[in-house]
Nucleic acid binder design. Structure first.
Lengths: 222, 222
DNA sequence: TAGATTGTTAATCGATTAACAATC
DNA sequence: TAGATTGTTAATCGATTAACAATC
């Protein structure tokens, strides 16, 4: 009834191929990738499982285990080569390519997202920005021009967009989600606080910084 | 060496009291809280474990299990009362009160955060905003005036701030994190892509929307 | 009552960790 | 060589799930 869940099958993390990764392995590999991407920017050439552990809060044994399931990527006594580990993980996650995303909402949040490196670093490109406020149409955000909501369907198919990002107020989120679904978007990234109703084949990820904060606070308070 | 990790002890989720919750239970309870808060806004009075499951992507049996460890909060055949479940979970997470947060960076992202309900809904109040750009000092963001970085230490102790939120470019993040640590902040919420080095008693949470997206994409692509 | 949903059990599966030989 | 760190094993612990009696 609600957001389309990701239904994983049992997975073998042994690198033998066709099976899906388990939810946990896929999530952790994504996190390693984030740290590695950043480590690369900082000019780091190798990284140990212990360093990765410090940054991801994942046990170092588990990191070595996760990685060794797909090959012998490390050098004993040295660690992992950052560059080659990045490409290995990208290959495993099959996210080596470029992916186009559409952003909805050209307010402060939308502008922050469009101008940040966060998505760009991982191969996501904001190729279209929409807003329902006529005053914002035509405005430039970075190199992209804000378009009216009516263009959505057309742009989604034209530009091969699979991810829609909602940077709008909670009250506006559901109607836009409906439009995205109708236009064929399969992944919705929801930055509003609204709970979205979508068909089961669509995945909704709701960003929840306050939830993360509550969680961090619990361990601080106890 | 890196971000301070949260080191949980073994926990009994049986409501008998003093022990810490496990990482998993605390994380899930936080997510239930987010959904319940939103459901309440939408005027919902009761909610079933199945509905909670639809929105959180957590198995409904596990939700009932998580909750029943602390008491019999539900009514068979009916579900859980939203209001009372919110206060029960707040009690369990010991986050029933107000918490003050300091925000660093008055750019698009900072403004988006300060004006959103996301933190406010969960009892977090942005009581101070800092920026290192002299041009921004004195500017109003919502009801809060942007202050110079020099005020940081003074404000943190004055206003009883435990959480610092970084909404600054990656290159600026580490020096500000250092200042926050020096001022006594114990939880840093990092919206930049930088990897932060902090002492072990400080918890860093790095927001990683692109990582979440990579992860969602993997399951879409396979 | 009939239908729905909780609370709980029992069985399984995956995550986690310590330890250490292999080896760079 | 000596030190460091991987790759891997084995043992444990917690998460997950199906199933169903209890009961609203």
């Amino acid at each position: 009834m609600a957001s389309g869940d990701v239904i994983p099958q049992s997975a073998r993390a042994d690198g033998t191929g066709q099976d899906r990764l388990s939810l946990g392995v896929a999530a952790r590999l994504s996190r390693y990738l984030q740290v590695l991407t950043q480590a690369k920017k900082m000019g780091k050439e190798t990284i140990s499982s212990q360093e990765l552990s410090d940054y991801t809060h994942v046990n170092s044994t588990q990191i070595r285990r996760d990685l060794s399931g797909f090959g012998k990527f490390g050098k004993r006594g040295v660690g992992y080569n950052v560059d080659s580990l990045v490409s290995q993980i990208r290959k495993i996650l099959r996210t080596a390519g470029q992916h186009n995303i559409a952003l909805f909402g050209a307010g402060h949040l939308g502008k922050a997202i469009a101008s940040s490196d966060i998505f760009a670093d991982h191969g996501f490109r904001v190729v279209a920005i929409f807003d329902s406020d006529p005053a914002k149409i035509g405005e430039k955000v970075g190199t992209v021009t804000v378009r009216p909501a009516e263009d959505l369907k057309h742009v989604v198919s034209e530009e091969d967009i699979v991810v829609g990002v909602l940077a709008v107020p909670g009250a506006a989120a559901q109607p836009i989600a409906d439009q995205l679904v109708e236009a064929g978007v399969k992944i919705i990234f929801n930055y509003s606080e609204a709970l979205l109703q979508v068909p089961p084949e669509v995945t909704v990820h709701t960003s929840s910084p306050a939830v993360d904060l509550l969680y961090a606070l619990y361990f601080y308070l106890t």
